[in-house]
């Protein structure tokens, strides 16, 4: 479904990613693990067309993504939940969700899509008229994920969804990500919280200083002594 081949990227300085190749198959949840500066966020941003200097090859369902304007990518079926949530702060929760439907704004199933998000995150429903900027981090994360789902993506890119959230909320999100995947959406999950990532993902890649250094099924990675030491703290 998503194929990344020999991807390198830089923001004007040295390469943040060099020669990264990975793959997400239909229906899979794939985790990308790595330390803070490993290039995980850049990888997702390059897929979404936000890194103008990315080189290599990215294909989504056979369509080449590099060189395509970023605003044309959601329409292909890719939803992106950016690091730091990025909700529209001075808009109501409902308007935030509606913005997510911008690329698929045919009104026919709009209410259905909103209901689906409300079912996944009942708390978002309770707060639908509130300004998103005034809500808690966990609620904003739910809005951000809900907003991406409003575009009916086939592939969801999740960038550090658990970052800075209370453990209880993290569990809630964890369940939601599993549910989204069961509804047929493939997920590419970037996480510092490796334990969480490997517990929801089928497979994973380990990124270090812009290179893929290890890949395997979640069970294999959980059992790997290097991963255990570096990312699981065991």
């Amino acid at each position: 479904m998503l194929e990344v081949c020999d991807l390198s990227a830089a923001y004007g300085g040295p390469d943040v990613l060099s020669g990264v190749s990975l793959e997400v198959k239909a229906g899979e949840t794939v985790a990308v693990l790595g330390a803070n500066t490993a290039g995980k966020t850049t990888l997702l941003r390059a897929i979404s067309g936000l890194v103008p200097k990315a080189r290599g090859h990215i294909a989504f369902e056979g369509t080449a993504l590099l060189g395509r304007p970023a605003h044309a990518i959601p329409d292909l079926g890719i939803g992106h939940v950016p690091e730091g949530r990025h909700v529209f702060p001075r808009m109501s929760t409902l308007d935030n969700l509606l913005m997510g439907a911008f690329c698929h704004r045919d009104a026919r199933d709009l209410t259905e899509r909103i209901e689906r998000v409300f079912k996944l995150f009942p708390r978002v429903k309770e707060r639908q008229t509130q300004m998103a900027g005034l809500m808690s981090g966990g609620e904003q994360q739910m809005i951000s994920i809900g907003r991406a789902l409003m575009g009916t993506p086939k592939l969801l890119l999740l960038d550090e969804p658990s970052h800075g959230l209370a453990p209880l909320v993290v569990d809630e999100l964890h369940v939601a990500i599993g549910e989204i995947n069961r509804q047929g959406v493939s997920v590419l999950l970037v996480e510092q919280n490796a334990m969480l990532a490997l517990s929801v993902a089928h497979r994973g890649y380990v990124l270090e200083a812009g290179h893929v250094v290890l890949s395997g099924t979640s069970d294999e990675l959980s059992a790997d002594p290097g991963v255990r030491r570096a990312y699981l703290g065991i």
């Binding site: 329409d75 992106h80 990025h86 529209f88 702060p89 001075r90 997510g100 690329c103 575009g151």
Partner: peptide, 10 residues
Amino acid sequence: QDPMASTLVG
């Protein structure tokens, strides 16, 4: 409010 997030929704 957020040009980057706007781009990400198309």
